[in-house]
Design a protein around this nucleic acid. Structure first.
Lengths: 144, 144
DNA sequence: TATTGTTATACTCTATAACTATA
DNA sequence: TATAGTTATAGAGTATAACAATA
């Protein structure tokens, strides 16, 4: 049988699994689970005007976001403030220690990830990372 | 705040989600769920000498593989034959209709996936696909 | 009445541990 | 005794629906 390239789905799935395996111990060191880190990362970009918006951004529904925020709030990494303009909304934002936690995590995650791409040619690696980033950006919108 | 590239994990996760969303309706048309297709694809490469080996290959444990094989066997897409050399093992292989099903699916999946990369420069796309394939190949070994 | 955030219930999926048959 | 495959039970994770506060 002729050798054929893998499906995109298969490749992405395998690489995601490899990345998760790399990241798991790093996150554990910081006392976080994956979704905690995902939420912190999203909040690192910008404050969330409401929990629903944040849930949409990270690709979960609001009910699954709540226990994550409970955890992060309990350790003072994020704050939920009622929006004065519409008291139904909660504005979610990083605290200062929350941002420090995020930055520290991000550094460790980046070093761990670097291993994954270390074997490939630097020029091609640059193209690869840029395309990956661009494509991911195109598909950041929600189907939860 | 300075714009920074996404984590690899985030990019892979988003793209995987996008791919799954694209593939879902295709698989549904063929009456398959994702894992059915994953198993068919693995068997398309080579017969499995035992179910444990197949489970390892697709990255699940043996107990979760069983209902998948039950489904596929029920519709005559695969066969489980006892290995004469060691009667504890079941050799798993595609049937002829199973291979036809796989080929038909694969074609539809590829066309669906093509949309995802259609916007990017053909030269860079080629590099991207090749690297993706190579990296996925490097990480095909099991941590289930 | 509609919407945000929350809680509670039911459901699905996954992991662990027994069980059968072969070796 | 150990291993391959299977089945059964318990636990985690997810989805759905109801609820309180606000608009």
């Amino acid at each position: 049988m002729v050798r054929q390239r893998h499906d995109l789905g298969e490749s992405f799935a395998r690489l995601l699994r490899a990345v998760i395996a790399l990241e798991q111990p790093v996150l554990e060191q910081h006392g976080l689970v994956m979704w905690d880190y995902v939420v912190l990362t999203a909040l690192g970009q910008a404050d969330a005007p409401a929990q629903a918006a944040l849930a949409d951004l990270v690709g979960r529904d609001t009910t699954r976001l709540i226990p994550i925020l409970d955890r992060l709030e309990a350790r003072s990494a994020v704050r939920r403030d009622v929006d004065p303009a519409d008291r139904r909304n909660r504005i979610v934002r990083l605290t200062d220690p929350g941002r420090q936690l995020l930055v520290a995590c991000q550094q460790d995650i980046r070093s761990a990830e670097a291993v994954l791409l270390s074997d490939i040619d630097p020029g091609e690696r640059h193209i690869f990372i840029r395309l990956l980033d661009t494509l991911a950006e195109q598909h950041n919108r929600s189907r939860k």
